[in-house]
Design a protein around this nucleic acid. Structure first.
Lengths: 335, 335
DNA sequence: TCATGTTCTGCAAGCGCTTGCACGAAGTCG
DNA sequence: CGACTTCGTGCAAGCGCTTGCAGAACATGA
C-alpha cells in the first residue's frame, strides 16, 4: 500500500505538505499542489480512511439499524438512505436486527465502537430499553418510526391515521356509505390502531355512523383478509366497499369476493394500503395508499446530516404525505 | 470517550497490559485480567475499532456492492450476507450502484480506501471494466452473478438453464407435451438465454420436438407476459401449458388467459420462475421455481470469510439448487 | 530601505490501539 | 541449588493521517 509518506519521499517534501495539498488546504503553492496530485495519480495512491478518521475524529460512516432488510418497505427506504448518504460522502453500515431487542443493543454498541458519525434507526416500534440505548449513544440518531417523536428522538414518519382517513374519504366521495374495514392487529399501535382510527374519523367527518359489525380484525396476512371479508359479507346490510389496512389483506378480500361470485369493482370496491408490488398485479389492480418510502429514507438522512454537521433541525419530527394510487378496484378512473 | 489509557491509569498499570487483557492474550495474570475487565465495565469502555484496525491492518468490514437494494431478490440475499457476516464479527458497508458502471468503480475505490477486508459483488452481469476493477482490488472479492466464474472470480450462483429444465420437466411429467414458453429478453445472457436453453433441453430429453411457434419473447414485465400469452394462444395446436421465465410474465399470462376465458389450471397449466411474493397471492397461486436467495448470500459470505482468513476455497464456483414450489396453477397437488 | 503582513513548508505531537523486545519473577528439573 | 523455561509486565515504536506552531520566503507599502 502506498502512503502519503511515499509521495512525500518521492517528491522530496514533507508528509504534512502532501496532506495539505491533497486536502485542498489554503497556503499550498499551486505548483506543489500539482506535483502532489500528479504523484498521487501516478503511484495510484489511495488515502487510508481509517487513519484519517482516527486523526480527525470523523468517520463519515453512518449506521443503519433496521429490523428486516428483506422486507420490501425497508429495502426501498434503505435505498433512499444510501443514496443521499453517498451523495454527501458518507458510507452506510447495515445492521439487520431481525426484531431482536438484544441484537439492537449489540448493534448500537458495535456502531459506537466503529465510531460512526450518526445512526438511523428504522423499526416498527421502539421498546423502552431500545430507547434507553439510543439515548446512551453519543452520536446523533434519527428514527424512522411511529413513536420516535414521543421519546424526543428526531423522527420522520407518515401519519397512518390521516392516510387511512384519506382512503376512506375517497370511497365516501365515490358515493359509498357502507364501508367495511379490515383492520390489522388492534394491539399494534404502529399501524393497526391508527388506521382504524383514521377509518372512524373519516366516517365521522362525513356524518356516517360507525358500525362495529363491519369492522373485522385481521393480522395483515392474505388469509386473514379472506376470513375477515367472509365475515363482512354476512353483515346486513352488506357493505358496498371494503378498506383493508394493508394490501395483503385487501387481496385476500378480493379472493374471498371472487369465491362468492362478487365482482370487483362492479359489486364491491376495494382499497388497500402500502402499494406493494402485489397491488399492481392482482386482477383488478388495487387502488391503494402509497407510502413515500424513498423520501422517508432520504429525509431521515438529510436530518441526520444536519445533526452530524452541527446544523440545527427545523423540526424534530417530520411527517410525510402518502399518495392514493388509483387503479381500477374501485371502478371509475384508474388503470 | 474513555480509552485504554484511562483504564491503565485507573489501575496503575501499562496500556499494553490492558490491551492484552482485553484481547485475551496469554501471559496475563488472571487477577489482572479480572481487574481490567471490571474497570472496563465500570468505566463503560468501548474499544475504538478504527484505531485497532489501523494497528492490525484488519478492519472486520466487508463491502457489499449491489445493483439495486430495493429489488426484492437482492434484499433477501443481502439479509443472508449480513447475517453470516455479523455472526463472524464482520460489519457490512452497503453500496448501491443503481447499475451505474462508473459508480461501481467509485465504490470499489471507496471500499479500498476504507480498508475493507473483503467485498461481495452482486449484480446481474459483470461488464468488462468492472471485472478489471475487481481484479485491481487487493482484497478478496466474491461475486454473486452468472458470469463471475468465467472470469476466474470466486462465484456463487444458480444454474438458470438446469432450473428452467426442471420446471419444464415437471410439466412434462404432468403429461403435457405441448408447452409454450414465454422467454425474457434473449439478449440477456444472465437469465433470458439460459432459461430458454433449459426449456429446449428438457423438451429434447423427453423427445418432444422444439417448435419456435410456441416460444414468445417478453421482457420480464407483466404486460409483456400478457402479450406473449395472447400470441401463444394463436398457435395451432394450442399449448396446454405455459412456462414463463419469471413470475411477472407468468402472472401476465394468467391475466390474458382469464380474459380469454381460459381457466387455470383446468385448461392451461402455468409455471413461473423466481417465487416472488406475487406468486403466492395470485389466483390460482402460481407454481414456480424458488431461488435459494438467503443461501446465495450466506454461501458467498462464507466463501469470502475463508478467503479473508487465508483458508483456501474448495471450489471457486458454487452452484446452488433451486426448488420447485408447487402451488395449484398446474392442477394436481399443491395449494 | 525597513517594517509588516502573507504564503508556503517543515517539525513534531498526537489520534487509540497493537506488538516485538526486554527483563524480572516465578516455577521446573536434574 | 543453579540452569532453564514459562509467566507477567513495561517500554517504545509504529499503523497512516492531521494540525498547531514556528520559521523561511516572499510580497507590499511607506
Amino acid at each position: 500500500m502506498i502512503t502519503m509518506k511515499d509521495i512525500a519521499r518521492e517528491l522530496g517534501i514533507n508528509e504534512s505538505t502532501v496532506s495539505r495539498a491533497l486536502n485542498n488546504h489554503p497556503h499550498v503553492h499551486p505548483s506543489t499542489r500539482e506535483r502532489v496530485a500528479e504523484a498521487a495519480r501516478r503511484l495510484n495512491y489511495r488515502p487510508n480512511t481509517l487513519a484519517r478518521s482516527l486523526a480527525t475524529n470523523r468517520s463519515y460512516v453512518v449506521g443503519l439499524v433496521i429490523s428486516n432488510i428483506a422486507n420490501l418497505f425497508f429495502a426501498e427506504v434503505t435505498q433512499g438512505i444510501e443514496q443521499v448518504a453517498d451523495a454527501n460522502g458518507y458510507s452506510v453500515i447495515l445492521c439487520d436486527t431481525a426484531r431482536d431487542a438484544a441484537k439492537e443493543q449489540r448493534y448500537l454498541d458495535l456502531l459506537a465502537s466503529r465510531q460512526v458519525d450518526g445512526i438511523i434507526f428504522m423499526s416498527g416500534r421502539l421498546p423502552a430499553d431500545t430507547v434507553a440505548a439510543i439515548r446512551n449513544v453519543k452520536c446523533p440518531v434519527v428514527t424512522i418510526s411511529r413513536d420516535g417523536a414521543s421519546y424526543g428522538i428526531p423522527t420522520v414518519r407518515i401519519n397512518n391515521r390521516a392516510e387511512a382517513a384519506r382512503a376512506v374519504s375517497y370511497l365516501i366521495n365515490l358515493g359509498h356509505a357502507r364501508i367495511g374495514f379490515i383492520s390489522g392487529q388492534l394491539d399494534d399501535a404502529e399501524s393497526g390502531l391508527p388506521r382504524l382510527a383514521g377509518y372512524k374519523s373519516a366516517l365521522e367527518d362525513a356524518g356516517i355512523p360507525f358500525d362495529p359489525c363491519i369492522v373485522q380484525e385481521g393480522d395483515f396476512t392474505m388469509e386473514s383478509g379472506m376470513r375477515a371479508c367472509t365475515r363482512l359479507l354476512d353483515a346486513a346490510p352488506r357493505p358496498t366497499a371494503i378498506f383493508a389496512a394493508n394490501d395483503e389483506m385487501a387481496i385476500g378480500a378480493m379472493k374471498a369476493l371472487a369465491q362468492h361470485g362478487i365482482s370487483v369493482p362492479k359489486d364491491m370496491a376495494v382499497v388497500g394500503f402500502d402499494n406493494t408490488a402485489l397491488a399492481r398485479v392482482v386482477t383488478p389492480p388495487l387502488t391503494t395508499v402509497a407510502q413515500p418510502l424513498r423520501a422517508l429514507g432520504s429525509t431521515a438522512t438529510e436530518m441526520l446530516i444536519r445533526l452530524m454537521t452541527g446544523q440545527g433541525l427545523r423540526d424534530t419530527e417530520v411527517v410525510l404525505d402518502c399518495q392514493l394510487v388509483v387503479r381500477s378496484s374501485c371502478g371509475g378512473t384508474g388503470i
